[in-house]
Write a protein that binds this DNA or RNA. Sequence first.
DNA 1: GACTTTAGTAGCAAATTGATACTAATTCGC
DNA 2: GCGAATTAGTATCAATTTGCTACTAAAGTC
Lengths: 238, 238
Amino acid sequence: MPDRTSSARSAHAAPRALTLAVDVVLLTPRGNELAVLLVATEGTRGARGRDRWSLPTDAPRGDESLDDTAARVARDVVGATPSLLEQSAAVGGARRSNDGGPVATQVSVGYFGLVPDGGRPESTKEWVGLSELPTLSARHREEIDLAVSAMRARVDQQPIAFRLLPPSFTLSELQSVYELLLGRRLHKASFRRSLHASALVEATDEWRSEGRGRPAQLFRYAPPRRKRARRGIRFDLL
Amino acid sequence: MPDRTSSARSAHAAPRALTLAVDVVLLTPRGNELAVLLVATEGTRGARGRDRWSLPTDAPRGDESLDDTAARVARDVVGATPSLLEQSAAVGGARRSNDGGPVATQVSVGYFGLVPDGGRPESTKEWVGLSELPTLSARHREEIDLAVSAMRARVDQQPIAFRLLPPSFTLSELQSVYELLLGRRLHKASFRRSLHASALVEATDEWRSEGRGRPAQLFRYAPPRRKRARRGIRFDLL
DNA sequence: GACTTTAGTAGCAAATTGATACTAATTCGC
DNA sequence: GCGAATTAGTATCAATTTGCTACTAAAGTC
């Protein structure tokens, strides 16, 4: 086994050609499933077949952090910062350039974001349901899968669902959002039981009548102030 | 809100100075907690204070993918490919260079790996318990936290614990590994009950007598062959 | 006024969990 | 040899959680 510790210091040496892209997978509820925002690349050089649609993407500019870049890309395509924007994964590897010349390392950092309202689609952008994705590059397809998995893994760690709803909402609306995010149906009674047990929502005195059927009470997101269970001082954080 | 869709194509343009590092957080069971492998940078330029220890790191070379780079860095420091090596997160941002010159974008992709046996520490490397970490750069400290969280999030998604044990092991050993990975104690009866319910292990006819106490039966990891519940063809994977 | 539709709750049986207490098989000290 | 200590493994019970069915409540539709 090698005894070299070269790795400790040889880092930060840039490879021959390194490009970095931040890809953003924006998701929004649309009908009975989630939709992802794709950008048309029609008319662009080499935009044929599987290259006609792509994820919104850009490289970091100036002194941006990766998070800042993702936020800017999202703002550019939907006009507002998503209510949730987190990193899902970085994929990368070398790719030999077209003319067989020197290799170029292409690294893509994937982010996923949630957008409450799909908004109006413009000509070059479109919300596409997850079940009807067009042919995409393998990398973009992979990033969408990773984004959805990463989002689902966080659904019960963070109050993600509430960020997709207006300040007050009915419990049926909340359940629908959860079903969309998780991609499966939930049981009404069980859903409400555990929701009330968690005390994450608070009833308002307003009701909403939506067509036929009994009016639904409106609730608001009101997480309990967890008392910091910090006894003493945590020196290990200093 | 901006109507520009510049982001779709302006990607892949490298910023002024972009460096990429793959940092590897190698973890091993050591005594009653997990230990992380640090590399001494003593004697190197600028290695003072919080720069005396760092994570093993390197930039991708030639035509390596990020995964390949992480595997190589791990091999270089512990002599073997870890039994598990996965990406935890990428952190990055701009940093003004020392002389106040142009900004340089530094991106670090963090990996975590699990190593069964801590092996012999060499002079320039050391296994350090998570509770006794020395002062590290903020980025390395953050990456260690992210690595531990990412690993813990996967403990019950993947059979991680078995990769830290020899082919046959006692159930007490298995429980200890889980306790180390999760950082908390587990109940013996409950642990065995759910383990046997999952049918992930299979008893051998061997027993091991380890000092005093009743001998323990040896088990091996034998996950049930889940019958692919694929009815028909999944066209959406093509 | 009966029927449909949506909201919300009650109640029950099955499954899961946390805990204590027990039995089993070995080593150590004498 | 024999009891105490130690580790392995199981039994049992109560409390909690979960999945489900069935019910009541309040609106609109015909």
